[in-house]
């Protein structure tokens, strides 16, 4: 075979001595084919799930350890914020303060309304979800164009795929897959993420899509099913939930309506949603599990007690 002979004529007609360490053609072809095989396997079915799980078992604890060791170091990043960023922050906080003052003024009315709703909700659907606390130990890089994080709780903590992940502010995402001690979470800002959402004020339902951006430019896109309803600015969007709470439990706040626009091309009303969660600085999150789940750590139960 010509390609395997040690010496050959190159394009300029000179005798070429093979360099030591230069790639041999069969190796190169085999490696490219291996890539193609991986792509096809992953495109067509769940054949790679065991492999992903195995690597999760190996790299999960390593990431967990690295994240813990580096925490004193990584938290210093906050100290080096620029003055401009801090000034922006003061502006934001002042605005939030004003909004809160306004809210306090109308709190009495809202509280009565809330008490009514709460009684209704509690009676109608005793969700009964407990929350397993976890920390974010790894971020998927932007180079991969998908927004995922690793958390340090896995199947031993009672977590399974398609469970809802929340934090103190609102909906974070859902569990994609688990290993023994870690789980991979798809954030709702991922371009592939779709969440069933409900506008709080009108109870209208729609679909919330992510735009794939993490930081301050991160917005969600709400597509309403009923085109005649226009959501108001400032309306809260919550999850509408699905049967047995998978992948999303009902009633978790997702975001606030920022602006409404109509798409001329497909004549639909869409709303831009500002997510309640700051996805660029996730730390402590909770995974909603059925009440009474056995876990390797303390679980915050549905009634607020620690078990």
């Amino acid at each position: 075979m010509a390609i395997l002979t040690p010496e050959r004529l190159n394009r300029r007609g000179r005798l070429e001595h093979p360099e030591p360490g230069a790639p041999k053609r069969p190796t190169a072809v085999a490696l490219v084919l291996a890539c193609a095989v991986l792509l096809v396997l992953d495109l067509t079915g769940p054949a790679l799930t065991p492999a992903r799980r195995l690597l999760g078992e190996v790299y999960g604890p390593l990431e967990s350890a690295a994240s813990t060791v580096a925490r004193p170091l990584t938290s210093t990043a906050d100290w080096f914020q620029t003055q401009g960023a801090l000034r922006d922050r003061v502006g934001d906080l002042e605005a939030a303060n004003a909004a809160l003052r306004q809210e306090v003024a109308t709190a009495g009315f809202d509280r009565n309304k809330l008490a009514e709703y709460e009684g209704l909700t509690a009676a109608a659907q005793n969700m009964g979800y407990a929350v397993v606390p976890a920390r974010v130990i790894g971020y998927g890089a932007s180079q991969s164009f998908s927004r995922t994080v690793t958390i340090d709780a896995g199947s031993e903590a009672g977590i399974e795929p398609d469970m809802t992940v929340v934090n103190a502010a609102g909906l974070v995402g859902r569990v994609l897959r688990v290993s023994r001690s870690t789980a991979t979470v798809l954030l709702i800002v991922d371009a592939d993420s779709v969440v069933g959402g409900r506008v709080g004020s009108s109870m209208e339902v729609g679909f919330v899509h992510g735009n794939g951006v993490l930081g301050h430019a991160g917005r969600l896109d709400l597509e309403l099913l009923d085109q005649s309803v226009v959501p108001a600015k400032g309306d809260t969007v919550v999850t509408w939930g699905s049967s047995k709470g998978a992948p999303y439990v009902a009633g978790v706040p997702v975001g606030v309506v920022d602006s409404v626009y109509s798409s001329v091309r497909d004549s639909t009303q869409r709303a831009r949603i500002t997510p309640l969660v700051d996805f660029s600085s996730l730390d402590v999150v909770g995974v909603a599990v059925p009440s009474g789940t056995r876990s390797d750590r303390a679980v915050i139960d549905a009634d607020g007690k620690l078990k």
Binding site: D42, G140, S144, T148, L186
Partner: peptide, 21 residues
């Protein structure tokens, strides 16, 4: 392959393998 499969990766496996190859 490790970048493609280790958590928190979720893209199609084989993409980083091809790129780094």
């Amino acid at each position: 392959v490790i970048l493609d499969l280790a958590p928190p990766a979720d893209h199609l496996a084989g993409r980083w393998a091809l790129a780094l190859l």
